[in-house]
């Protein structure tokens, strides 16, 4: 009768799991170390930017023909409602660091916080 776990395989298993956790940790640090408060919320559908809103101006914006509702308040952005049944995008909460993103898979929509200000006045070239 074979044993359920051979010792040698168990050791290899643990090495694999440790390696994967290490990769996750390194990736997390790499993606989040340089993060800072963002300036704008950029809305993309199918990866193409459709609109952007400054985080310093409060407001409520229907996105994508009203399929998702974007709220900006006190420098934070979140989706308050959506037409999908699971409302995962609403559960993802408020974002304000650069690089943070809210994703709505059914509507192929993302809201990303990015640095800088909106309206293209962050850079004036004489």
């Amino acid at each position: 009768m074979k044993r359920l776990f051979a010792d040698k395989k168990l050791r290899n298993d643990l090495i694999l799991i440790a390696a994967l956790l290490l990769i996750a940790g390194v990736l997390y640090l790499a993606l989040n170390l340089g993060r800072q408060e963002g300036g704008v919320a950029v809305v993309r559908v199918d990866g193409v930017e459709v609109e952007r809103h400054s985080l310093s101006v409060n407001g409520t914006f229907p996105l994508n023909g009203g399929s998702n509702i974007l709220v900006i308040e006190d420098g934070k952005a979140w989706l308050s409602d959506a037409d999908c049944p699971d409302l995962l995008c609403v559960k993802q909460g408020k974002i304000h660091y650069t690089g943070q993103v809210i994703t709505c898979l059914p509507n192929r929509l993302t809201v990303t916080v990015e640095g800088g200000e909106s309206d293209g006045v962050d850079l004036v070239v004489g």
């Binding site: 940790g25 993606l31 993309r44 990866g47 993103v101 994703t103 192929r108 929509l109 993302t110």
Partner: peptide
């Protein structure tokens, strides 16, 4: 389908 931003979910 949605662009590079989603890699933030990877970890």
């Amino acid at each position: 389908l949605m662009g590079r931003n989603v890699v933030y979910y990877l970890p």
